[in-house]
């Protein structure tokens, strides 16, 4: 999942989350991210892949879910 790999790298390098905590079932809150940080994380994902999360899609609860949604949006966008 390319989105998932991007999220892991982003969270470790930019948000200081320890790699060991990063599993698909992890929730943003569980990783210590508040609403502002989660919003920034989504924005970075959108910027990286040229996609846009809808308000509903932005209500994901786990990293795995966020990455899966992103991959769907990337797929739908096409080349």
């Amino acid at each position: 999942m390319k989105s998932y790999d991007f999220l892991v790298k982003l969270l470790v390098e930019e948000f200081g989350v320890s790699a060991g905590e990063l599993v698909p079932e992890a929730s943003p809150t569980g990783l210590g991210l508040d609403s502002l940080s989660t919003m920034e994380m989504v924005r970075e994902l959108e910027d990286e892949f040229g996609i846009t999360f809808s308000t509903e899609q932005a209500n994901f609860t786990t990293l795995g879910e966020a990455a899966a949604l992103a991959d769907e949006l990337i797929e739908a966008k096409g080349p």
Binding site: E14, F15, G16, V17, G32, L33, L36, S37, E40
Partner: peptide, 8 residues
């Protein structure tokens, strides 16, 4: 100051 807080 941990990185996550320092960002803000």
């Amino acid at each position: 100051i941990p990185k996550l807080r320092g960002r803000y």
